[in-house]
Simulated scan of single mutants.
Amino acid sequence: MGFLDIKNVTKSYGAVEVLHRVDISVQEGEFLVLVGPSGCGKSTLLNMIAGLEGISSGTISIDERVMNGVHPSKRNIAMVFQSYALYPNMTVGQNMTFGLEMHGVPKPEREAALKDVAKLLQIENLLDRKPGQLSGGQRQRVAMGRALVRQPDVFLFDEPLSNLDAKLRVDMRTEIKKLHDKLKTTIVYVTHDQIEAMTLSTRIAVMYQGYVQQLGTPKEIYDTPANVYVATFMGSPAMNVLPVRVVMRDGVPHAAVRAQDGAEQYLRFSQSNLAAWDGREILLGVRPEAITDPDGADRNSANIVPLSNRIGVTEPAGADTFVTMELGGRDVIARMRADANVVSGQDFTFAVNMEKAVAFDPASEERIAP
């Protein structure tokens, strides 16, 4: 049993079920990120944890106490909204301690909590200002501070960085990570940004169409995606997924793929269980960084396979160069070193790290486990 337990939870609006049998157990001090596209149900689930939405079936418990039907004010949770939701007529200090005041916390305790949190967030010099006098990043710190002073059981973040510009978003992401490392608080964080999910979380729940597609650590989600949806949603650029035929050569399964010139080439799999798929088509998933030039290949891998093909588009991107080529009738992206000698239109021998390859069933789009 976890500190926050979500057991077989569903949510319906009339006859339409929008969340389907969600089971997630969050340990105390864990940072869980709910990630997925708009409309996948992640914010609905967060609001159910907060008590802002009712539960159609199942149970949500915090510290072994069932929260079904419990008013939000009685749940000892704190929520940080996308819109900050600060009172414009109050100072920063008043905004941060208003909740404590409403709960009858004595003034000396409120002031002590405000002083500690303001120091932690480095906003001591902003306490007498109004929200309208603050930048977006400062307002976000105040919204976080208002949650922190209450010392709740669970912090809920609803896309808190989506209103910030790109650089500030990165900076605030780092601050939230530092804060969690220091306080070891239990956090449930909603975002549509898979980079935020990967960098902040201890575990990720990838959601789509009201279902949890996969629950796992960032490494598990990235390296062993449960299905094609997770594989292509998590990662930038996304995992390459292309149809291949399994061919047995010398007793070892290989992926038969067609290069741009039509020639069939064979990529040796590392997982032996694919022998059962001999002669059948599967979907091969390979991350862009697992396709590179021979000098840039992972020297720790025991299964680097050469692949000859024509270079399509090259895209210099500072630390990396992205190369697009046609493989199996689809565009495939390779991630090269910045100084890789690649030229559009030229033939090139790529190095494919097949230890990082993932196989999917083309019918169900589920991963074929080793």
Rank of each mutant, 00 (worst) to 15 (best):
Y87E: 00
L179D: 05
Y222G: 11
L45H: 00
F322H: 05
H192L: 03
M198A: 02
A85F: 11
M144I: 15
D128H: 12
P225V: 12
T321N: 10
V244L: 07
F3G: 00
P152Y: 09
P243Q: 13
S43E: 10
R150H: 00
V332W: 08
T185M: 08
E124F: 05
A338V: 09
M90D: 08
A340I: 05
D63L: 07
R146G: 08
A359L: 12
V246A: 03
M144N: 04
R110W: 06
V286D: 06
Q346H: 15
S272W: 03
R141G: 11
L127V: 07
A85M: 08
P316W: 04
V190W: 02
L32D: 04
D128F: 10
P152L: 14
S38D: 02
R173S: 10
R21E: 13
R139D: 10
I176A: 08
V22S: 09
V352S: 01
D293T: 13
D158R: 14
M48L: 02
V92D: 04
M102W: 01
D298L: 14
S135G: 01
G93H: 11
R129I: 06
L121G: 09
A290P: 07
A357L: 13
D320A: 11
E315G: 11
S364C: 07
M198K: 02
Q27F: 07
R337Y: 14
D320V: 11
V35C: 06
A147T: 07
Y229S: 10
D347M: 09
S162W: 11
V18D: 04
L126M: 12
R75L: 04
I77E: 13
L52Q: 00
V33G: 00
E264W: 08
D181M: 15
Q213T: 12
A143D: 00
D128G: 13
Q27A: 15
L19V: 13
R268S: 15
L34E: 12
D331F: 09
L134A: 02
G69F: 12
T224N: 14
S12Q: 10
I24D: 03
I187Q: 13
M248V: 11
T232F: 06
L4C: 07
A297H: 03
N240V: 12
N273S: 15
M48G: 03
Y84N: 00
E64G: 15
K119G: 14
I204G: 11
A319T: 07
K42E: 13
V35G: 01
Q138K: 01
L148T: 03
P306M: 09
K42R: 15
L134C: 03
I6C: 04
D153C: 10
R203F: 04
N125C: 05
L183F: 06
E64A: 15
Q94N: 09
C40G: 05
G210H: 11
E109C: 11
G132W: 01
T185F: 03
A297N: 10
A276Q: 14
S73I: 14
E365Y: 05
S61Q: 01
M248G: 12
A340D: 09
I176V: 09
I176S: 02
N76G: 11
S272G: 01
A147H: 02
V305R: 13
